[in-house]
Amino acid sequence: MRTSKTPDSFQAQQARKRLNQFSTDLETAINHATKFNPYRKTAVIAFHWENDDIGVQTLERELLDVFKSVYGFETESFTIPLIESQFRLLEHLVSWSRRNSGEDTLRIFVYSGHAGFGGTVASCWDLAGRCNQNTGNLQGPKLNWWAVRDYLEQYTGEVCYLFDCCSAGSGALGAYNGAEFMAASTWDQTAVLNVHFSFTRILIDELRQLNGQAETLAGIYARIFRYAQQNQIGAAPIHIPKLNSPSVTIGRSRTRPVTRSVSQESYRVLLSIKVQEEIPPDFTQWKEWLARNIPASVLSAEVTIEGAFQGSSLLLFTVPIEIWTMIPANDPSYTFIGHVKSHNLLSQRLAQTSMLTSTLPMHSSAPSGRENQPPRSPDRKLFSGPGR
C-alpha cells in the first residue's frame, strides 16, 4: 500500500543527540564548507567520446580555458576512443594521475557526455558517446566508470569529480571511496540536452564570476543551486562531500577569499533534529538555554533555530546550502524537510505581536525587510527537450 508517511514516522524512539554534539556537528560542517586551502598544484583533465553526438567539445574547451587562464591550473583533454574504450581511458587517467600526484595537490576529473541510469543495486554504471533519444538507451561502445574510478584515488593528493550527464549522481554510488563529487543530476534524473542550459554552462559562469578567487566546491555548489531556477538550469545539481573532510578549494594559490554574501531571498535548508535535553517551557529560559549550549560562532554562521517543541525535544533549524551539504548524509539524527527562502514567518509574527502587547499603549511598527535582489545574470529562455 502506498503511503506518504516515511518509515521514521512509525518509530517511537528516533536517534537523538546531545545539544553539544549538535553544536559540534554544525561547527564541523561550517569549517568544512568555508575553510580555504589553496593547493600548491591543481590539475584538471576533461574527457569526452570520439562519437559524441551532443557537441560537448565547445563547452569543454571553454571550461578548461577558464581553469587555465583565470585560475592558473594545468589542463588537459582526452578523447575516449571507440576501440578498447575502457582500457584506453583507464590507462590515460592513471598515467595522468601519477604525473599529477603529491602532497598539497588537487586533481579534477571532468566528464561530459551520455550515461546510463544507475542505481543503488546496480553492478556497473556505463558511459557512452551516443544515446537513442526515444528510448534513452546507450548506443555504440560503452565503458563501466566504476571500474575506472577505483584506480584514480590511489595516488597522493585530493581528488574531485565534475560530471555533466544523465544519472550523474551514480558516479558516487557503487564501491565508492569517497572523493568529493559535484554533478548535473541525481542518480535517477536526466540532464538537459541543450548545452546552453547545462550544468557545465552554469559552472563556467560561476567560475568567471569568482574570477579566480578562492571558494570551496561546497560554496560553488551552493551558488549554483541558489540560482538554478533563475539561470533556468535543466536539472538541480548534486554535491556529495568526501566523508569527514573539508571541501576542496577552487582558486588561485594564496589568493584572497571571495566575500561571502547570502541574500535573504536565497534558498536555505530546513532540517529537524531530536535532542536529548528537555526544552524549557519558558521563552526566557529557552533563550538562556540556547545561549549556554550553542556557541555564538554557530549562530553567527546563519544557523537559525526556527522552532522548538516540548515533549518531543524536537528542534527545527535552517542552514545555508553549503553547510547543509557538508552535514553527513548518513547521520540518522538529522531529517531533511525542505528548501525555504525565509525564516519561520509565524514565529516572527508571534514575536512581533508579543512585543506590541507588552508595549501598549505606545505605537510601534515592525521593521521593514530588505528589497528583493535584482537578477544576477540575464534570463535564459526555458528549454524543454530530451535529456542526455
Rank of each mutant, 00 (worst) to 15 (best):
V195Q: 13
N144G: 02
A168S: 12
P237M: 02
E215G: 13
G174L: 00
A184F: 02
Y151W: 14
W187S: 15
R149C: 05
I224E: 07
G171D: 01
T186V: 04
C165T: 14
R223F: 02
L193I: 12
Y151P: 02
H239M: 04
A183V: 04
I202V: 15
L193K: 11
S170H: 00
I204G: 04
H196F: 14
I224M: 04
N244E: 08
L143D: 03
Q230H: 14
S170E: 01
R201H: 13
I220Y: 12
F181E: 06
C166Y: 07
Q189E: 08
S185T: 15
I202Q: 15
Q139G: 04
C160Q: 13
R208N: 07
A147S: 05
A147K: 05
A228C: 10
G169T: 01
I238D: 03
W187V: 07
A183K: 01
R226P: 09
P241T: 01
Q229G: 09
V192H: 03
D205L: 12
G234I: 04
T216M: 15
N144P: 08
S167I: 06
L203R: 12
G171Q: 04
Y221F: 15
T190Q: 06
Y221L: 14
G178D: 04
Y176V: 00
I204F: 07
A228S: 11
A184I: 06
F163W: 15
G178F: 02
Q229S: 12
G171R: 00
Y155M: 09
V195D: 09
P237I: 04
R226V: 04
D188P: 00
A214I: 11
Q213C: 13
E180F: 06
V195Y: 09
A222P: 05
G157F: 11
